[in-house]
Design a binder for these strands. Structure first.
Lengths: 180, 180
DNA sequence: ACCTGAACACCGTTCAAGT
DNA sequence: ACCTGAACACCGTTCAAGT
């Protein structure tokens, strides 16, 4: 049985998107591809590296062409929500391989028109931290609801979009009154 | 060999604080207490519940007496940094048992003087998400550095405190120009 | 009431040996 | 070059049986 790196990444991505991080194991990927677990390590260094390239794929449909921070933040969240546990995976990869989290670079570019490179960096990371924190909470909650360990709170049923944008607008508002 | 719930929580907390989340296993706790793994389940429902009470202990030295959001955010971060992977654990527990994340309530109270309950809630959660996102990244990075899988970036050696406060101030700045 | 022993169903990773 | 077989060192959780 022959396997390619692409097949491994594809299968890992599909497992994550459809069944979440707890279902994404090396052994499960190997099983689905009809191969022994050890075979994967000829194409991929370890699980961390696999997660990094899966995270890159999650962020692939984030439009680098965003013209303003607000819509960049929205697009970032949308990309994360397309995949189960998307925020958690990207969050981990951010520490492991920061350059993979492309929204940071996009936001940095957008803030650079108004702020110096140092402040633009901090500003971009502020937005990224907020988005990852917000989406991580809503996805973690969704996983727990799905597992039946916690029931949907009435406040959740409310308007997550509205709450999300409230925070984004507050941050961008505060940043716009910052000078360099 | 007799074990109490308190001993279990104490040992779990110490393992997390000193060796991080990857070292905090039910089997390790049981081994350290000289008991079989199954014995723990007489005192604790499962690992999730154990993590929840450990998270509560992490937040114990967060002063509920904070008088302004800025120092509350700082105290929140300080409490998280005292324990390895503190942000990750609290992040998970936030979805599982939100009421355990006491800084949210404290911030809510502080914002309530200026904002209505709905906006005060969103404002508190914006700050909480930012703090958790920020600290999660710095702690994840620290774990990877400690494991030797990634080397310290020069930007990290910079001023995390300054970057942190930049974001906090931007958020609070933006929130203060919000009316209800 | 509380614990042991033992199992069930999993993990990530390595590596000699095969083709 | 690439994979198998098999192991190593782990996980969380359950549960009959013992005391």
């Amino acid at each position: 049985m022959k396997v390619t790196r692409t097949q491994i990444v594809d299968r890992a991505y599909d497992l994550l998107r459809d069944h979440g991080l707890s279902s994404l194991s090396m052994r499960r990927v190997a099983l689905d591809l009809g191969v022994q677990p050890g075979a994967l390590y000829y194409h991929v260094a370890n699980k961390q590296e696999l997660l990094a390239v899966v995270a890159a794929r999650v962020l692939e449909d984030f439009p680098a062409s965003a013209t303003d921070p607000r819509s960049a933040a929205e697009a970032f969240r949308t990309a994360l929500l397309r995949v189960r546990d998307g925020a958690e995976v990207v969050s981990f990869v951010q520490a492991y391989r920061p350059e993979i989290v492309t929204p940071t670079a996009t936001l940095h570019r957008l803030f650079s028109t108004r702020l110096g490179p140092r402040h633009a960096d901090w500003a971009a990371r502020t937005v990224v931290h907020y988005v990852l924190g917000f989406v991580a909470e809503e996805q973690n909650r969704a996983e727990l609801v799905h597992a039946g360990v916690v029931e949907e709170a009435p406040s959740d049923a409310g308007k997550p979009d509205e709450a999300f944008l409230f925070g984004v607008d507050a941050i961008l508002n505060g940043l716009s009154s910052t000078r360099t």
